[in-house]
Design a binder for these strands. Structure first.
Lengths: 169, 169
DNA sequence: TATTGTTATACTCTATAACTATA
DNA sequence: TATAGTTATAGAGTATAACAATA
């Protein structure tokens, strides 16, 4: 256990850059001037935290963020085509197929070949899907609210604007 | 192309909630009061944007954020054990094995069985690994700076604090 | 008994390429 | 020719379970 203990901050020698240190193993140190000041690293860590809580909270992990946002889009846009789902979520159309397959196998959506343009598959929620979506929305709101609570209204507003600046720039 | 055009905001009827609409297909609409106000959705979108630019910018996509942060940790903590890498990055120890394998196969790190505790594999960067890491750091800084530029110093400082509030809460 | 590393396995998410049918 | 959907395939990333060596 010697090595594990040397990683413990309580055993660091005087003079070590304590505040800025994440890990101090075998004398090495990594400062806050490296990873934690990178925007990308912080966004990644926040996303991982939110992803995990989503999985632990919503629908017992059965539905994750990707599938949820897909179902949400279908629910809000009855008859939306897969290509539009792909464009909305910025993923390849091929990647949408398997996701819609899963929603269909779960009995939450139905594909209907468009009569106007027979290349298009129109996606609709089933009654069961609409019900599931309503339940998911409640659970997701609850999950999301947990984190929104960490901020004042003004802070949250600004936070969302910062995030949007990144993906809409 | 009729259906695609019906998705275009320019063809929406008067009275439609234009500002709040992402997609309007088959008469359906999804408002900004759904997805884009969810903290999780915004973090996810920002992360995807950063991830993509990272892949397009850094090391010609050869090294992605996960592998980079692993190599960074090893570089800053010579002799760190795999279990400590796992704990630092909040992933299972089993997941670390394949990542270290790849770093080792690339010739950037070396495993050395600890003499103090023979269960532990100490990870060190090779000279080639140190060189690669230095180059990666420059490229990552450059990539990251692109997005930092979207913010004033004060904004960036606040933004990072917001993100940390989520994953350190 | 507990810990470290490992292997086997599986699942999510995503991408590319090639194909079908439709436009 | 171009578009929408599909299939096949691959790779990154992660998790769990079971195991060996070591503590």
């Amino acid at each position: 256990m010697k090595r594990a203990e040397s990683l413990d901050s309580t055993k660091r020698e005087a003079g070590a850059i304590e505040m800025d240190t994440i890990v101090g193993a075998a004398g090495g140190q990594i400062g806050l001037d490296v990873l934690p000041e990178l925007l990308g690293y912080n966004v990644r860590r926040a996303q991982i935290e939110l992803w995990r809580d989503f999985g632990a909270t919503v629908s017992e992990g059965e539905v994750r963020p990707g599938l949820f946002s897909l179902l949400l889009l279908v629910g809000a846009n009855p008859g939306i085509a897969q290509i539009d789902l792909a464009n909305q979520l910025s993923v390849d159309k091929a990647s949408i197929v398997a996701l819609v397959d899963r929603l269909e196998e779960a009995g939450w959506v139905q594909r209907k070949r468009s009569t106007e343009d027979r290349r298009r598959q129109e996606i609709f929620t089933t009654p069961a899907g609409a019900k599931k979506l309503a339940q998911l929305k409640r659970e997701v709101q609850e999950h999301d609210a947990k984190y929104c609570k960490l901020f004042t209204d003004d802070e949250l507003h600004q936070f969302l604007e910062f995030l949007q600046r990144i993906y809409r720039h």
